[in-house]
């Protein structure tokens, strides 16, 4: 038997564990009923933010993109419109986090970052919807509602991450 050439490092294991939690949260997220289709709490973002604060940004990117890929495969939306919406949302929120992650922690906590990233997620999705899926201005009628929900859930998720970071977690 040939030896495996790929060395699996400790951080690979960590990414796998964190992604697994993120995927689980994304699937719970999928099954939460919501009054407006598409308005979701986005609880998987808790893990992404936690990873970026606890470890580093690259790990966060890995966890986020793996979550999109694996969750879409489990839910059966892989390469469908929902997948691209989810991907664009993830990419946009990662971009916004990239620009804001180095802001002094005394000035802005993870709550602000959470709100920015969830708003960026919504804006990215609307970009895809407007340009590709429903190319009509009427869809923008829903934008204020989605932004409002992203603000509310952004604050809630941010507070959850804040509490998670304050705790001593093992493993």
């Amino acid at each position: 038997m040939t030896q495996s050439i790929i060395k699996i490092s400790k951080s690979d294991h960590m990414i796998a564990k964190l992604s697994a939690i993120a995927v689980a949260l994304a699937i719970i997220d999928f099954f939460i009923p919501s009054p407006i289709p598409g308005v979701k709490p986005g609880i998987a973002n808790i893990i992404i933010l936690f990873t970026i604060y606890k470890y580093d940004f690259i790990t966060g990117v890995w966890v986020s993109l793996l979550r999109v890929l694996v969750a879409s495969m489990i839910l059966g939306t892989f390469l469908g419109p929902t997948f691209f919406l989810s991907l664009m949302g993830a990419v946009m929120s990662l971009l916004s986090m990239y620009f804001l992650k180095d802001i002094n922690k005394a000035f802005m906590s993870v709550i602000g970052l959470s709100v920015v990233s969830s708003s960026a997620h919504v804006l990215g999705q609307f970009l895809v919807v407007r340009l590709w899926i429903i190319p009509h201005d009427g869809i923008l009628y829903l934008l204020p509602l989605f932004l409002l929900s992203s603000l509310i859930f952004g604050v809630v998720n941010g507070l959850i991450v804040e509490n998670l970071l304050a705790r001593k977690l093992n493993g």
């Binding site: 802001i103 802005m108 602000g112 709100v115 920015v116 409002l148 992203s150 603000l151 604050v155 804040e162």
Partner: peptide
């Protein structure tokens, strides 16, 4: 736990919502 920057971002997002 809300710092100045957080309030700033919440205000900005609310402004964006009203604008949209």
């Amino acid at each position: 736990k809300f710092k100045t920057g957080d309030w700033l971002i919440i205000t900005l997002t609310s402004f964006l919502i009203v604008l949209s």
